[in-house]
């Protein structure tokens, strides 16, 4: 599709990211709210019901009193899909994104959880830099997805390099292993993002992107959609439950993305997210 060239000032991206980071840390997207509410009705264990009830109260207080849903307001992961007929002007894009994150985390009373170096560990005091993934797409719009990621669940995420002969069972096994190991650490009920195929890093990136897909929305590929449904049921049968204290609701969704891969490989990445699965989307 051919589109007219459009000029976009990166200050618009800064503003959007600022607003989205603040909003999503106080108000989950409608799909996540609905999933949590439905889970509350579905849970059977007394402790599970109690915890899911507390999570409902928590969401209400977060919204009404502007207190972040969780104190871990995350490291900001930003996906930018930039139309190839967009001409960006203003500050350079990376700076513009980080300006938005900085503004959100300082003005919005969000926690600064980022250290500048993984070993020296000096806090950057403004939650920058963000992790930025840019793609060039057709058209003349800029689509922004912001997903602040908490690390209780991020730490439980895994990449498995399976053998092609392991097939679907290898995939099932990878997902279940990651979820079982995550248990109470990942603040269940979880959302599971899965990337199957590609290369080592492509699988991980797909798993992360899968978390930004609306919960309750399935893949267009039949076998993938079937696997999403099947794995959600299997995971919920594990009985890990809300807070990891036992119950019928361990996960709210399994979102799977796939890509072509090498004749010798079957990469499977499992990105675990907690019930505070924050994802916001905006288009400029």
């Amino acid at each position: 599709m051919k589109a007219d060239l459009r000029v976009v000032n990166t200050s618009l991206i800064t503003e959007a990211i600022r607003d989205m980071c603040i909003e999503i840390n106080h108000d989950l997207s409608p799909d996540m709210k609905k999933a949590l509410l439905d889970a509350t009705a579905r849970e059977t264990s007394p402790i599970g019901c109690r915890i899911l009830g507390q999570l409902q109260d928590n969401l209400r207080i977060a919204h009404d009193e502007m207190i972040p849903i969780c104190q871990d307001t995350g490291m900001a992961v930003v996906f930018l899909d930039i139309g190839q007929d967009v001409h960006l002007i203003g500050k350079d894009l990376t700076e513009a994104v980080n300006d938005g994150v900085r503004a959100a985390y300082t003005e919005g009373f969000l926690r600064k959880s980022v250290v500048s170096d993984p070993i020296e560990r000096q806090n950057t005091t403004d939650n920058t830099p963000a992790v930025i993934h840019t793609s060039i797409v057709p058209g003349n719009r800029v689509s922004i997805r912001v997903a602040p990621k908490g690390f209780g669940s991020e730490n439980m995420s895994r990449v498995f390099m399976r053998k092609p002969a392991e097939g679907l069972d290898g995939v099932r096994n990878s997902i279940l292993t990651a979820v079982r190991d995550a248990g109470p650490n990942a603040c269940p009920p979880m959302v599971i993002g899965v990337g199957i195929g590609g290369t080592f890093e492509k699988a991980a990136l797909m798993a992360k992107e899968a978390l930004t897909r609306e919960v309750g929305c399935h893949s267009e590929k039949k076998w993938v959609a079937d696997l999403e449904v099947e794995m959600l049921d299997t995971i919920n049968e594990l009985g890990i439950g809300p807070g990891g204290l036992g119950g019928a609701v361990t996960a709210l969704a399994v979102n799977i993305e796939t890509y072509a891969t090498h004749i010798a490989g079957l990469p499977v990445a499992v990105n675990i997210c907690c019930h505070v699965n924050r994802h916001a989307r905006r288009e400029i």
């Binding site: 915890i51 507390q54 999570l55 109260d57 928590n58 969401l59 207080i61 977060a62 009193e65 207190i67 972040p68 849903i69 969780c70 104190q71 871990d72 926690r111 600064k112 959880s113 806090n123 005091t125 908490g150 209780g152 109470p184 603040c187 807070g243 204290l245 907690c274 019930h275 505070v276």
Partner: peptide, 28 residues
Amino acid sequence: AAVGGAGALLSKCITSSEIVCYEDLGAE
């Protein structure tokens, strides 16, 4: 264990808070 991810709710049960040391660590 307290309920993970219920930070807004739990904050309502905290009636005072003061930094004792290591202020340079910010949230830590």
